[in-house]
């Protein structure tokens, strides 16, 4: 099965960095989609199947935390795998994300290799 990945970040450079790491980890370029904020991402998850979402938190229009709450509230997407990739490190906000069942967390700044290894581990765990 080809894993389908959604990269959500308002920074076009960071979307490219994450896309490149995902490809190096074994994903196919054509199976990766991108969104610039939580609202765009929500539209995409409503219309497409994804195995995992790689999600920034600090974004305009709809932030990452709001996106996770929306996804978890919907029957079709409540179990969607979500990995947060963010500068955010506030303990209270991270505790809320953990309660919402995120699959992983990577704090920026990170080395590209760390991101590649994290994505590879997630892809290996997919059914």
């Amino acid at each position: 099965m080809i894993p389908r990945i959604l990269v959500v970040d308002d920074s076009p450079v960071m979307r490219k960095v994450v896309r490149r790491a995902a490809i190096q980890a074994g994903a196919q370029d054509g199976s990766i989609m991108e969104a610039g904020n939580g609202r765009e991402a929500l539209d995409l998850v409503d219309k497409n199947w994804f195995d995992v979402v790689l999600l920034d938190l600090n974004m305009p229009i709809m932030d990452g935390l709001h996106f996770v709450r929306e996804v978890r509230a919907r029957e079709a997407t409540k179990d969607l795998g979500i990995v947060v990739v963010t500068t955010e490190s506030n303990r209270q906000r991270m505790a809320e994300l953990t309660e919402l069942g995120i699959s992983g967390y990577l704090h920026k700044p990170f080395e590209p290799e760390t991101l590649r290894e994290l994505i590879a581990k997630i892809l290996e765990g997919l059914p």
């Binding site: 920074s11 974004m59 500068t87 490190s89 303990r91």
Partner: peptide, 28 residues
Amino acid sequence: ALLELLNIVAGEVIVELGGQEEAIKLGM
């Protein structure tokens, strides 16, 4: 790239200023 670096450095600065317990919100 400049804006992403700014976001990353700002994330480190607010932890330096307030620790991980203070709810300091970053703008865009």
